[in-house]
Computed example of a mutant assay.
Amino acid sequence: MDVEELEKKLVPRGEVSLIGCGRLGIRVAFDLLEVHRGGVKKLYVFDGAKIEENDIIHRKLGGLVGEYKVEFLKRFFGNRVEAYNVNIGKDNLHLIKGDVTIICIAGGDTIPITREIIKYCWKKGIKTIGTNGVFGLEENIKVEDAYYCKGPAELLKLEREGHIVVGTGKFIKDFEPITPYTLDEIAKKIVIECLRILRRL
Rank of each mutant, 00 (worst) to 15 (best):
V143F: 02
M1P: 07
K97E: 03
L198N: 09
H58I: 09
V3P: 01
I129G: 05
A106L: 08
D91A: 12
L198R: 07
Y44G: 01
L93T: 14
G169I: 13
G107P: 14
M1H: 08
R37H: 11
V35K: 15
G48H: 06
V86Y: 09
G107N: 10
F77I: 14
H94Y: 12
G89T: 13
N87G: 02
I113F: 02
K189Q: 15
E116G: 06
C104M: 09
G48E: 01
G38K: 12
F171H: 14
L183C: 11
K60E: 03
Y147P: 10
L183P: 05
V81N: 06
L201T: 15
L43K: 14
E71H: 13
R160L: 09
I118L: 07
V191Q: 04
I141L: 03
K90W: 07
N140H: 12
R199T: 12
K9Q: 13
Y120H: 14
Y181P: 05
A83Q: 05
E82G: 00
R37Y: 08
L33W: 07
G63M: 05
T110I: 03
I105R: 00
V100A: 11
I56F: 08
E4G: 06
K60W: 02
D184M: 08
I56H: 10
T110V: 07
H94T: 15
E4I: 05
I197K: 13
D174T: 11
D55K: 11
Y148Q: 08
I57E: 04
K74A: 15
K170W: 07
R196Q: 12
E193L: 02
A187N: 09
G39I: 09
I56T: 15
G62I: 01
G130H: 01
I126E: 03
D184G: 08
E144Q: 15
P12G: 09
P112S: 05
K90E: 02
E67C: 06
N79L: 07
V45C: 03
T131Y: 00
K42D: 00
L155F: 06
I57G: 03
E138S: 10
K9W: 05
I186C: 13
G78P: 04
E185K: 15
I57S: 05
L43N: 11
K8M: 01
Y84T: 11
A153I: 04
V166S: 02
I102H: 04
G66M: 00
L198Q: 03
A49C: 08
E4L: 14
I105S: 07
I57V: 12
I88D: 01
